[in-house]
């Protein structure tokens, strides 16, 4: 069994570390739709991939991964919205963990919108 002793040890280690969290208005927000529609179409592994990679790549000082309810476009779930300060919101549709990883790499790190996966590139007829 994993004990709470380890948690105490982590706390000891973290004490004294100055929190480097950026102000909210400089944060990029990555929002995953997590209502029934999103969850049923696979939003949980997408959200997990995004938060794991954002931590692993050390982006937590300026990227926050959060969730929301139904965005109202259930047929396009899982949906991920990326909101960068001062830029228009980008809506990615029909996500999966692999596409999510690509968005971390190319959009959040590289700074380029991955056009292929956006709602605006979808053929809506």
């Amino acid at each position: 069994m994993k004990s709470l002793e380890e948690l105490r040890a982590i706390r000891e280690k973290m004490q004294g570390q100055v929190s480097m969290r950026a102000e909210d208005h400089t944060h990029t927000r990555v929002v995953v739709g997590m209502a029934t529609c999103g969850i049923a179409s696979g939003a949980r592994p997408v959200l997990n991939t995004l938060s794991r990679l954002v931590q692993e790549k050390g982006l937590t000082d300026h990227v926050a991964v959060t969730q929301t309810g139904c965005i109202g476009l259930c047929q396009y779930e899982p949906i991920v919205e990326v909101m960068e300060p001062g830029k228009p919101k980008v809506t990615y549709i029909k996500m999966n963990p692999d596409k999510a990883a690509e968005i971390v790499e190319r959009h959040l790190i590289g700074g380029h919108v991955v056009e292929n996966y956006t709602l605006s590139s979808a053929d809506i007829n």
Binding site: K2, E6, L7, I10, K13, M14, Q55, T60
Partner: peptide, 11 residues
């Protein structure tokens, strides 16, 4: 926080 998040996962 990342450290705590991964502790919770392992726990």
């Amino acid at each position: 926080t990342p450290e705590i998040s991964s502790y919770i996962w392992d726990y």
